[in-house]
């Protein structure tokens, strides 16, 4: 059994030595922050034209995270490529020849990708929160307001869990094309659309992204008397992640490389 620290170090070298890592993570940060900032600026400038109802339910914290809807696509690419590129390049055979204990290999890969996603996710969420609030002027929330710190930390957690979900799904699919072809449309189109269709949204609210994003809300929306709270939502997402990671492990353990 090779030393766990050695395998972690090896996986860290792998992840830092390909361009896609820096590009996808930088893109996720830039898109989320830039788009969040623009939306906050727009709200601040058009505040007077909002209906009193909208003004009453305005959630400054959640508003600053709106850019994540687009930024998360780059995180999906990151999560998928971390593992699926091993298969598409044939590197998986070299990797498993070096570390035949597949559980250790997989756990190290998940840990390194997760840790990196956590750092980038937290940095993104704190930066976009403070920048967004600064641009919201008098409508801003304070980090010390009730539920706000939870939402900001939760946004970072959400991004981390999303990456892990994609790692697990890609480990099951074993192909970047398949992984991106399924996950990108799902999180960008299918889930957001289904979640606003009456009846269907009763199911869609349990989708990992819909459940996980609940933690970023501070002011309950007009229609948000859902069956779970912020932590319940992230818990539901965590269950999805656990299932995906387990599925990925079983596929990796079972199948020929």
């Amino acid at each position: 059994m090779a030393a766990p620290s050695a395998i972690l170090q090896s996986e860290w070298t792998k992840i830092r030595s390909v361009r896609s890592t820096i590009w996808t993570l930088a893109l996720a940060f830039i898109v989320t922050v830039a788009l969040g900032a623009i939306i906050c600026l727009v709200f601040d400038n058009t505040w007077d034209s909002l209906s009193p109802d909208d003004q009453a339910t305005f959630d400054p914290t959640n508003t600053s995270f709106v850019g994540m809807q687009l930024g998360q696509l780059a995180l999906i690419v990151f999560g998928v490529l971390v593992i699926a590129s091993e298969y598409s390049t044939g590197m998986i055979r070299t990797s498993l020849a070096a570390v035949p204990q597949r559980g250790s290999f997989y756990a190290s890969k998940v840990a390194v990708a997760g840790a990196l996603a956590l750092v980038v996710g937290m940095a993104t969420s704190f930066v976009v929160f403070f920048l967004g609030q600064a641009l919201l002027g008098s409508h801003k929330a304070q980090i010390s307001d009730p539920g706000v710190l939870r939402a900001v930390v939760g946004a970072g957690l959400y991004m981390t869990l999303l990456v892990l979900l994609c790692v697990g799904a890609a480990a099951m699919l074993r192909s970047p094309m398949l992984g991106l072809g399924i996950l990108m449309p799902f999180f960008f189109l299918v889930s957001p659309i289904l979640s606003v269709i009456p009846k269907v949204k009763k199911v869609a609210q349990y989708f990992p992204d819909q459940a996980g994003q609940k933690i970023m809300q501070v002011v309950p929306g007009s229609d948000s008397n859902g069956p779970y709270g912020p932590w319940g939502g992230i818990g539901i997402m965590a269950v999805w992640v656990a299932v995906a990671l387990l599925g990925g492990y079983l596929v990796l353990r079972q199948r020929d490389a």
Partner: peptide, 10 residues
Amino acid sequence: LDAKSIHGGR
């Protein structure tokens, strides 16, 4: 193994 067991981006 075959020469293609390498990540080309590295």
